[in-house]
Design a protein around this nucleic acid. Structure first.
Lengths: 317, 317
DNA sequence: ACCGTTGATACCTTGCGGATATGAATGATC
DNA sequence: GATCATTCATATCCGCAAGGTATCAACGGT
């Protein structure tokens, strides 16, 4: 049939991103003429011109922009399909759970216990990652299910909220602001967050573009991390040095009382909602079992919300 | 690279659906040996066996089942991408709005008026269809935006609820039940709905499989429609004949008072929510304009909810 | 006016996808 | 239990389309 081919989409995305046939061809590891011809063939099949080209510059048409979005999605979906199939073909496929270390609202042990009591419960493989990596891992087939903070990019995912809890500002005990009992985000001007972004605004929310870099502050902070710190111990180290602050869910702050660090509420710091998420077309019984377990634990936890969290018995250290 | 090809996925889906290489090859319009070889090549690339085959029967492995879901999605996404690109390449691309005739909650005229006042508002092209066709039209690239009833299959879509309104049972004035002022679904046992499904249960909800047939009743009704009636006039004809009942949103019943038909509330008939929906990766300004218009109209309408709907001035007939 | 850049064209080569012929294995039949 | 039919796999050939090289043509900057 007159079907689009994956190769054509790959080529198209390369040219659309480079806006230069020569560079795109180099990126694809091929010569320029066959690339030009392949794009022409794609345009012929679609009956649509995708690029306006002169010998000096190449621009996307409106149709090209539309196709670019879809083509990226399709290519990602194909790669994800391959990954998922490969995983499912392993002799004993595990349930790959993506989460950010310690950001599980303290529910993880109970969720895992409830999960293991389910019928179809293959062993769980943890996939630890930084903020915003969980949804990506679900989409590209590296994970089967995730515990993540919403809002996030929910495209292609099913998301079930579990619990909402406030976040606190973690700052050095030596910080002047530590003397105050409550803060506002504006008070944090000049300080940075562990990922390098400025701390006086809360950029929580779905990441818009895929190739997004963390915005840089104009004035250089005293401490610059080469890579964004994702490990909590690294983060605490940075905070103790001053100049860096972090917004941490209450469950994390309760678990990590540290001498050099204080936690303060901030009025305009939005609470974070923990959710369980999975790919929309997943019909895996293991995923279903995990989701059941997670929602059951969260529901039983909600009834305890009336008593203060200190009153809850800690089962283990 | 070791990338999957669309052709391989098409072949795989055909074999997975037929579970027979010969028939699958016939369906694909090709000979059986190259099909077998192509599947083997796919398995080699994935490093996974997708089918257990003996000379007498072919079965899907677990990995095959996983890939089948993803492959169907990918193929649909590619076809949709092609359709969308073709449409976007037309000289004056229109905004294609999918909806079910008359099931617009009476909002459509005002939504269209508000939409036309927006900045980027290309002409609207209506795409009328039966229940459950709207989400499909969005997914496969035939429509850019839709007004539809939730719950529906929201996979790949963004959905914004507009208004919720009760549904009423439409039945023949000659029906014994017409004497009662209120019904329950159980009272409707034995009657059928216009699509042929039994009327004593409400199968509202997301359709599970793609190739689902409407369930047949065991006892044959007096009137059998060859195709499911989707046109309201056809539906009314059937209802007048008795034996058929329909669940219609209040906005429809208000617009169509008919002598031979009465509308009765049913206690356990869930209300229907009208929503505006669009493909998740759509960044079209026209779609954004339409969604803004629809939500604005719905919001302004919500304030009038306190007064009974009869009190609302009817602008046109 | 000249030169460099860049996409298009022409032509050749090759690898892969498809067809035909045939083999091998398995279940059914008498 | 020998035979046959069914069905997937293998062997081999062929044609086309994807990729490479050489070259042209158009446009911009100096």
């Amino acid at each position: 049939m007159n079907d689009l081919e994956v190769r054509q989409l790959r080529y198209f995305v390369a040219v659309a991103e480079e806006l230069h046939f020569g560079r795109a061809a180099a990126r694809l590891g091929m010569a320029q003429p066959p690339l030009s011809r392949s794009i022409r063939e794609l345009e012929r099949r679609l009956g649509v011109t995708l690029f306006e080209r002169t010998t000096r510059q190449v621009t996307l048409t409106a149709a090209g922009e539309v196709l670019l979005r879809d083509a990226r999605d399709v290519l990602a979906a194909i790669a994800a399909a391959a990954r998922r199939a490969r995983h499912a073909g392993r002799p004993a496929p595990r349930l790959r759970l993506a989460l950010k270390a310690d950001h599980d609202g303290g529910l993880l042990p109970r969720i895992l216990a409830a999960y293991r009591r389910e019928e179809a419960a293959p062993p769980v493989e943890l996939l630890l990652g930084g903020r915003g990596e969980q949804d990506q891992a679900l989409r590209d087939g590296r994970a089967d299910v995730a515990l993540l903070a919403v809002p996030c990019d929910e495209r292609g995912l099913d998301v079930e909220p579990l619990l909402t809890e406030p976040r606190l500002v973690a700052l050095s005990a030596a910080d002047p602001l530590a003397a105050r009992s409550s803060l506002r985000l504006a008070d944090l001007a000049g300080r940075t967050r562990p990922d390098g972004s400025p701390a006086d605004r809360d950029d929580l929310g779905p990441p818009v573009g895929s190739g997004e870099r963390p915005p840089k502050t104009d004035r250089e902070p005293a401490v610059v991390t080469h890579r964004a710190a994702s490990d909590l111990t690294q983060i605490f180290k940075l905070i103790e040095l001053g100049d860096t602050v972090a917004f941490l869910p209450a469950c994390v702050t309760r678990r990590y009382p540290r001498p050099g660090i204080v936690y303060r509420p901030a009025d305009d710091l939005l609470p974070v909602t923990l959710a369980v998420a999975w790919p929309q077309n997943s019909h895996s019984p293991a995923v279903a079992a995990f989701v059941r377990a997670a929602t059951a634990v969260a529901a039983s936890d909600e009834q305890d919300t009336t008593m203060p969290p200190e009153a809850v018995t800690r089962s283990s250290g």
